[in-house]
Amino acid sequence: MAAISVSARRRPAGPAPDPASRRAGLKQRVRRNLTAHGFLLGALLCFACFSWYPMVREVVMSFQRTKRGRTTWVGLDNLHRILQDPAFWQAWRNTLLFTALALLLGFAVPFVVAVLLNELRHARAYLRILVYLPVMMPPVASVLLFKYFYDPSYGLFNSVLRFLHLPTSAWLNSSSTAMLSVVIAATWMNMGGATLVYLAALQGIPGELYEAAELDGAGLLRRIWHVTIPQTRLILSLLLLLQIVATMQVFVEPFLLTGGNGPQGSTTTVVYLIYQYAFNFNNYGSASALGLVMLIVLASFSGLYARLSRAAD
């Protein structure tokens, strides 16, 4: 069989651009890139001034001590000092307790509310606004509102308990209920954002999966377990990490509700202890050392969580 060879034909080349057109195109590209890099430079300067520099400064100050205007390098003395402080360990216990309770309520309750909103057929938009309303309120106003609710004498919660002929509670004035009261207030303030994120993830689930589950005889709980949770696993994992990092840095709620310490130090958190070191004791070295410890703990947890998430995938 004879081989058939086909010669490739070249297309006639177009006219070469003149030097003036090349220079104009080059100027346009340079101008466009300069504009883009100018916007990028502004963002980088903001991050450098307000995020990166304070972080570097905190690391430096954790190895220094300032007394009477003189700054000296003390090595790990600040770290040794905070480790010997009994308030250090109590603050970490309170912070971990707050994180556990906040995840138990603040992670599960928004998901349940999102599932209920997703199942509704009427007044869905109004209920979304109602759920998100606490997020739009100033945090200080929300906390002061709950402080009024928790008042043992004329607060709303004890008034309801008296109306139901149930025993009242000291709420913020008792070491056994102070932390739980702070968690309830924080959950109400922040659940709206997480609820809307969950609701958006739920509405992205194909309806055919629910129809197939219903044909198999699956009830509501089985549909949630076998369809909803697997389909929203990525969002659940991401919000879990973000909520753990956020709740371990809680400050506003215990500071305004209980003055920071609470009865018998029951609401002293790590961030509030940093505040005390810096602004009550004027010990910026110890405050920076404690902030560095928290940074290392949160970074280690985030890295471990990301590694476990990749291994699970």
Results as ranks from 00 to 15, higher is better:
105 L>W: 13
40 L>P: 04
3 A>S: 15
54 P>K: 08
249 Q>P: 09
305 Y>C: 03
73 W>C: 02
77 D>H: 11
168 T>N: 10
162 R>V: 04
139 P>Q: 03
188 W>I: 01
251 F>R: 08
198 Y>G: 03
133 L>P: 01
140 V>T: 13
135 V>N: 13
40 L>K: 05
166 L>F: 10
216 D>H: 13
3 A>M: 12
151 D>K: 00
39 F>R: 05
78 N>E: 03
213 A>V: 04
60 V>D: 11
60 V>K: 14
16 A>D: 06
144 L>T: 01
75 G>T: 04
149 F>K: 00
176 S>L: 03
163 F>R: 05
219 G>I: 05
99 T>H: 06
70 R>I: 03
127 L>T: 02
162 R>Y: 04
65 R>Q: 14
194 A>S: 14
189 M>A: 08
235 I>M: 15
38 G>M: 11
209 L>N: 08
67 K>G: 01
311 A>H: 10
145 L>G: 01
111 F>H: 07
110 P>N: 09
219 G>F: 14
162 R>G: 07
194 A>H: 07
65 R>N: 11
55 M>W: 09
63 F>C: 01
198 Y>C: 05
219 G>V: 05
151 D>R: 00
230 P>F: 12
160 V>H: 02
272 Y>E: 07
264 Q>S: 08
24 A>T: 10
284 Y>E: 13
157 F>A: 02
277 Y>W: 13
236 L>N: 10
118 N>K: 06
64 Q>P: 00
214 E>M: 12
11 R>A: 13
189 M>D: 00
222 R>M: 10
240 L>Y: 14
15 P>G: 06
181 S>C: 04
256 L>S: 01
159 S>I: 01
161 L>E: 08
158 N>Q: 08
258 T>E: 12
163 F>D: 04
261 N>V: 02
69 G>D: 04
132 Y>C: 01
225 W>G: 14
224 I>G: 14
145 L>N: 00
218 A>N: 11
262 G>F: 14
28 Q>K: 11
73 W>S: 04
124 R>L: 00
1 M>V: 03
13 A>C: 04
76 L>P: 05
28 Q>P: 02
230 P>N: 08
17 P>C: 08
164 L>H: 01
42 G>S: 08
161 L>Q: 07
143 V>K: 00
294 M>Q: 15
127 L>A: 03
96 L>T: 05
9 R>F: 09
193 G>P: 01
253 E>I: 09
172 L>P: 01
206 P>Y: 13
208 E>S: 13
76 L>G: 12
188 W>A: 01
246 A>D: 15
10 R>F: 06
23 R>Q: 10
155 G>P: 08
228 T>W: 15
173 N>H: 02
308 L>Q: 11
197 V>S: 04
268 T>R: 15
307 R>F: 10
116 L>K: 09
199 L>E: 10
183 V>I: 07
24 A>Q: 10
51 S>Y: 15
198 Y>A: 02
95 T>H: 13
210 Y>A: 04
25 G>V: 02
237 S>Q: 15
35 T>A: 15
270 V>W: 12
